[in-house]
Design a protein around this nucleic acid. Structure first.
Length: 878
RNA sequence: GGGUAAUUAGCUCAGUUGGUUCAGAGCGCCGCCUUGACAGGGCGGAGGUCACUGGUUCGAAUCCAGUAUUACCCACCA
């Protein structure tokens, strides 16, 4: 009967690649504008040199679920894929690779280096996209974009020129975050602050012409050579008499003035601050206020400069130690204390970031951020979960100008050309030719040649291209009224990690409002962070991140998708455990075996009245489930929707429904029931398809013959009808009765072979009546009959308020039974007491909603009924 | 220093208009089952003062205040 060619265990490796290839071949993921409603998602572009990690899996599975469901709902679903050139990260990787070949970046020309970078990109870039295919991602690959491809780069430059002309981009000498490892400026967002243990050195500065010392506390003795003042709080009595005095800086011997500023925290250290404007952002501000010079004692790579005069060429961290011991030698180091404080590290290179005064390009944020703030505050863009709204608001209200220049080669080069030595001797233009023309005009020198122009060597921050992504992937800059941008923009949902809410999401909203007059997406779904079961963030450096491709090999993409999602509610971190994937794989296997059962049945013509009640029960429950899943997905409660389906399929469909209708061994199933069952299964496969695309597609084709082009991926999403609660309820009662019979058999060790008669103490028809044949079958009963009196000596149980007697021919242990009944009785009496009290309370009766009141009355009646039955039962026992 | 969230079974978490048929699920654990779809399974079971203290209310896991831990975000304390 069962066909041996269908294995007992589902093997995804035989299925997944085959279906993916089929979908691609059929072009199901392709999208072109038409008259359907669009549903668009743009992928957060992974780094072009990146490899798939568990965070991507979570993120992209969610996107795929949303896209696949929209596609089945008949929308024109488009998921745009692509990669990010990730300027600093990629450049670092290329430098590393070249170093391994014995080539130093400094030995190469810019052009040569860029050539290497492109080579790397072409060889390794896009690997991650192929990995996404293994996951089942239903992107329109024909639309794959790259942030460094010509049209996207053009968009970046156009925007730069535009914002420059609007006065929103400017060049200025500012304190910026400097990465001494990568030798580039960083934006504030690229600096990661970590609490570290440091030493606080108490250094003595001599007062000029006196035999008096002032002690200054500092964590950075290596910057002493850059000191230009010592600062006290004006109200600090300890130092009031130093006004107008001069101090001698140790080591350098420089004479610096004493100044006073309320910035000083009297409590900290000794209340004395050495002011080093070149190497501290606050000191810089104080220096400006007091018109002090800036003495930079570092080179770009963090070594001591000629200006320092001491330890020239040695790294600042080494010099810190040397300076301290030298001070000690000189008797100028009073003491050293431990100090815990936050130090900034470069996100990419992990180098300690140095504040550095430098000439950089900035984007003014004030005007751009205002409408982007409003969009989120007014829910034009919905953050899911909404708890991020406050953080977003706070950030946007305190946003500072964005440093967009990077001293790197890999990226869009800043379209500014210098024609003279002056600070303002430059032009910003879309091309060299335009720049030349403009420069000639500016200099009033028609003879100016290309060779007289020097383009700014810096490139733009990667995010200066990413922030345009939702527009540029639809060529919205080159063709502002093109069919794609008009149709697909604004996109529907953005799915991303909360850590780039400010980096990226906020800026995309700014760009959207500025360049399209419309926000780029309506909903932003913020996923959690994937952690290991010790709550550590999964990262390559920790080595605690499993390789998703290995997991797919072992558990199947479907299994991994389920495992990833089942434990991840929106915005909550997910503690990943491989067991979750095992659960997912087991679920796939369960579905597989449900199919094996159904397909193994021989079908006979006609119907079977016994199955009508179970079919009706399941049908109505199915409609209810479709409605619930729709509702949950509509609210982005994706994990809950999956759980709902998981238990509906496993428990209601497999454990109950299929057992209800399963024909006896060797018998055929009636055609009517079989037909219903196939249709139910089809609906379940549809509902599960967005979550588990592969196995559902496979079984969909096994379940019935399909025409060419008839695939689950493009099948219509199930609609639901109204359901009747009573139909559902009677099935639930039947389940309860069967469970209790099984329980009795198990507890009394009756075995499951022998059949016993069941009596129902009743005077009327009961809701489970239609399920009698089913109960008879699954309860292994020899018959069901109604009685009006207790059946002495029989085992009994209660379902709802109805008493059942199982005549198993064994005597019950009356004492144990009595105690059980007594316990139950007491619980019920307590319950009734509370309801009575509640219903006796005028304020409750007056204040409660009518339906609540009604429910309470029902509970009261039920409880009374049960108590009566239990009391009778107890009386019969004694 | 400021902000946001969390604290429910051994573990991970649901519990969305306050109603003692809400104290739940999954995993894990324990017992029984070589049952004809599935041992990647079936049936059953144990296990929680819902962090703590007050308050509001007829009634609180749910609302409010405070406390304690934890996590994350933001911030220029040398």
């Amino acid at each position: 009967m069962s066909q041996p060619e269908i294995p007992k265990q589902y093997d995804p490796s035989q299925v997944e690649d085959r279906w993916y290839a089929h979908w691609i071949e059929k072009g199901y993921f392709r999208s072109v504008p038409d008259d359907r409603e669009p549903f668009t998602i743009v992928i957060p572009p992974p780094n072009v040199t990146g490899v798939l990690h568990m965070g991507h899996i979570l993120n992209n599975t969610i996107q795929d679920i949303l896209i696949r469901r929209a596609r089945m709902q008949g929308k024109n679903a488009l998921w745009v894929a692509g990669t990010d050139h990730a300027s600093i990260a990629t450049e670092a990787k290329v430098v590393q690779k070249l170093r391994a070949q014995g080539i130093k970046k400094s030995d190469l020309s810019r052009e040569e280096f860029i050539r290497h970078a492109w080579e790397w990109t072409n060889n390794y870039g896009g690997i991650i996209l192929d990995q996404l295919k293994k996951l089942g991602a239903s992107c329109d690959w024909s639309r794959t974009r790259f942030t460094m491809e010509p049209s996207l780069s053009d968009a970046v430059l156009d925007v730069f020129v535009d914002l420059y002309e609007k006065g929103l981009i400017y060049r200025g000498l500012r304190m910026i975050n400097w990465d001494p490892e990568a030798l580039t400026a960083l934006s504030n967002e690229e600096v990661i602050y970590r609490e570290v243990s440091d030493k606080l050195y108490f250094v003595r500065y001599r007062v000029k012409d006196q035999d008096r010392f002032v002690t200054v506390a500092t964590t950075r003795p290596e910057t002493i050579m850059g000191d230009v003042a010592v600062c006290f709080h004006p109200n600090d009595p300890r130092y009031a008499d130093l006004k107008g005095k001069t101090l001698i800086v140790p080591l350098s011997g420089r004479e610096v003035p004493v100044i006073y500023d309320t910035y000083i925290d009297i409590e900290f250290g000794t209340g004395a601050l050495k002011v080093t404007p070149a190497h501290d952002i606050n000191d810089y501000e104080i220096g400006k206020k007091h018109s002090l010079p800036v003495i930079d004692v570092f080179n770009a790579d963090g070594t001591m400069s000629e200006t320092a005069g001491l330890w020239v060429g040695e790294d600042r961290m080494v010099v810190r130690v040397k300076a301290a011991s030298k001070l000690e030698e000189l008797g100028l180091l009073e003491k050293v204390e431990e100090l815990r404080h936050a130090v900034g590290f470069s996100e990419r290179t992990d180098a300690v970031v140095e504040p550095r005064l430098s000439l950089q390009w900035f984007m003014s944020m004030e005007r751009l951020s205002a409408p982007a703030l409003r969009a989120v505050v007014e829910d034009e863009v919905r953050l899911i979960p909404p708890k991020f709204k406050n953080a977003y608001r706070h950030w946007m209200e305190n946003i500072r100008d964005w440093c967009i220049s990077r001293q790197l080669w890999w990226g869009q080069r800043i379209p500014a050309w210098y024609f003279g030595p002056g600070e303002n001797d430059f032009v910003v233009a879309r091309s060299e030719a335009e720049a030349l023309e403009e420069a000639r005009r500016r200099t009033d020198n028609p003879g100016l040649g290309i060779e007289d122009l020097k383009q700014d060597p810096d490139v733009l921050d990667t995010w200066a291209s990413s922030w345009l992504w939702p527009i540029s992937v639809f060529d919205g800059f080159s063709e502002p009224n093109g069919p794609d941008i008009n149709y697909y923009y604004p996109t529907n949902v953005l799915v991303t990690a909360p850590e780039i809410l400010f980096f990226w999401v906020a800026r995309m909203i700014m760009a959207g409002v500025e360049y399209r007059g419309e926000v780029p997406f309506r909903d932003v779904y913020l996923t959690g962070i994937v952690r290991d079961n010790l709550r550590r963030k999964m990262s390559k450096s920790l080595g605690n991140s499993p390789d998703p491709l290995e997991i797919i090999k072992e558990y199947g993409a479907d299994g991994m998708r389920v495992g990833m999602l089942i434990a991840s509610s929106a915005g909550n971190d997910i503690l990943f455990d491989i067991r979750l994937c095992e659960q997912g794989r087991n679920f796939a296997n369960k579905i597989w075996n449900a199919f094996r059962l159904i397909q193994g049945w021989e079908v006979r013509p006609g119907g079977n009245p016994d199955n009508e009640a179970p079919v009706t029960w399941f049908e109505h429950k199915l409609h209810r489930t479709v409605s619930e899943v729709d509702h949950l997905l509509g609210e982005f409660r994706i994990s809950e929707a999956l759980k709902q389906l998981y238990s509906f399929l496993w428990d209601d469909f497999c454990s109950w429904y299929l057992e209800f209708i399963k024909p006896a061994y060797g018998e055929a199933i009636d055609e009517a029931t079989h037909g219903y069952t196939i249709r139910f299964f089809e609906v379940l496969l549809k509902l599960l398809h967005p979550f588990m695309p592969f196995i559902t597609e496979e079984l969909w084709h096994f379940l019935a013959p399909r025409k060419d082009g008839e695939d689950l991926t493009i099948a219509p999403w199930p609609a639901h009808r109204e359901w009747v609660d009573n139909y559902i309820e009677s099935g639930e009662i039947a389940k309860d009765i069967i469970s209790k019979i099984r329980d009795l058999r198990s507890k009394k060790q009756l075995g499951f072979k022998e059949e016993w008669p069941l009596c129902v103490k009743t005077t009327s028809m009961h809701p489970f009546h239609a399920f009698s044949p089913t109960i008879l079958k699954l309860g292994k009963l020899s018959g069901i009959s109604a009685v009006t009196e207790d059946v002495p000596g029989a085992l009994s149980f209660l379902s709802g308020t109805t008493r059942f007697f199982l005549e198993a021919g064994i005597s019950t242990n009356t004492e144990a039974e009595r105690q059980k009944l007594q316990g139950e009785l007491e619980r019920l009496r307590g319950f009734l007491f509370s309801i009575d009290k509640k219903l006796g309370n005028e304020r409750f009766v007056a204040g409660a909603a009518p339906d609540v009141l009604e429910r309470e009355k029902q509970k009261q009646a039920d409880a009374r009924e049960k108590i009566k039955i239990l009391e009778e039962q107890l009386a019969a026992l004694s």
